[in-house]
């Protein structure tokens, strides 16, 4: 199986889907002549032309709205947001139009559209450009939210998103684009709504997604040396949550730690905790623990930025706490 970078896997998914379906087009800032701010659309302008690879002005609300309109009349837009921080401007179109018109039109309109771009901290980009905003979008009925951690999942989920009949929000990661991994060639589909046990274990379930997945794997590796068997469950999709997979794993291990890059209050992890306590209460041997970004705006200084985010030592401490182990 070829090894690709995360950005190459996304590029492959885009190219394959545009090849397969002439209604698919890509729009966003710098996606064409510049080949994408993060080079996800490398080579696509040359291959598909400017009618399907559209350089938009800096106008997130505008091109999000035009694309939602295009989706309603039969096209399948892929809207690249340079980062999700900038898409805050476009929330009205995403939330009030794309997410709701199928419902409000009584099914007369559909909105098969993908909004995608990097989320989370990129490294010394300060408060306004370092936010993990997936919880905001996961809040809305009418949207699906995906956040793959690995190149293979990125490809498979983007293909599913493009084929979905509803708006899908895809969180990539600025620090994930260069991550390498094996990616199946051709028709590789990862269904939306399916979590994936990335590492099997028996003592505790670590629930995570996107970039935090790598910290969780690092923590699991270190804990294994202490004889603690960690199961790492990569949610991959944040809306709808794969309740079955979460509950099955917690019922096996009796303990859970949820790690997310975003803030704790009203975070995705809070909903996962709610799910676990309501449906697996009698299986719990300890309160569910969360490792989240600190409840502050992101600092510019590198040391403070690192201290603000979850990392393997913080995850290890949380795991030991739910295991009632020393040193937690």
């Amino acid at each position: 199986m070829p090894e690709l970078m995360y950005r190459e896997a996304l590029n492959q998914a885009l190219a394959e889907e545009m090849e397969r379906d002439a209604n698919v087009f890509l729009i966003g800032e710098e996606v064409g002549r510049y080949n994408g701010a993060f080079k996800v659309s490398q080579g696509l302008l040359d291959r598909f032309g400017s009618a399907r690879i559209i350089d938009a002005p800096i106008s997130e609300l505008g091109f999000a709205g035009m694309s939602a309109g295009a989706a309603m009349v039969g096209l399948r837009p892929v809207v690249e947001m340079m980062t999700w921080n900038f898409a805050i401007l476009a929330m009205d179109q995403i939330v009030n139009n794309a997410a709701k018109l199928r419902h409000m039109s009584g099914g007369q309109l559909r909105c098969p559209i993908v909004f995608r771009g990097p989320g989370g901290a990129g490294g010394r980009l300060s408060s306004q450009h370092s936010q993990a905003l997936e919880a905001n979008y996961a809040h809305f009925p009418g949207l699906k939210v995906i956040a793959p951690a690995t190149p293979a999942d990125a490809k498979g989920l983007l293909k599913s998103a493009i084929r979905d009949e509803n708006p899908v929000i895809m969180f990539e990661g600025e620090r994930l684009y260069a991550v390498k991994g094996e990616v199946p060639e051709g028709e590789h589909i990862v269904p939306i709504g399916k979590a994936d046990v990335k590492r099997e274990g028996t003592d505790v379930t670590l629930i995570t997604w996107s970039r935090m997945y790598y910290f969780c794997m690092e923590a699991a590796e270190a804990l294994a040396k202490e004889g603690i068997s960690v199961e790492v469950l990569d949610l991959r999709t944040l809306r709808p949550l794969d309740e079955e997979a979460i509950l099955a794993s917690v019922r096996k291990t009796n303990r859970a730690v949820i790690c997310e890059e975003g803030w704790a209050l009203a975070g995705i992890g809070a909903s996962v905790v709610d799910l676990i306590q309501s449906k697996a209460f009698d299986d719990l041997d300890a309160p569910v623990a969360r490792v989240t970004g600190l409840d502050v705006n992101m600092s510019y200084a590198a040391n403070l930025e690192n201290a603000t985010q979850p990392d393997a030592p913080k995850i290890i401490a949380a795991v030991k706490k739910v295991l009632y182990r020393e040193g937690a």
């Binding site: 009796n254 209460f281 009698d282 299986d283 719990l284 041997d285 300890a286 009632y324």
Partner: peptide, 22 residues
């Protein structure tokens, strides 16, 4: 813990006789 309670009930153990380490 909820799990401990369930295990005790399943096996007929009197929880008040078990020393808690948590």
């Amino acid at each position: 813990s909820p799990l401990a309670k369930r295990m005790a009930q399943d096996r007929g153990l009197d929880l008040s006789r078990v020393r808690g380490s948590g």
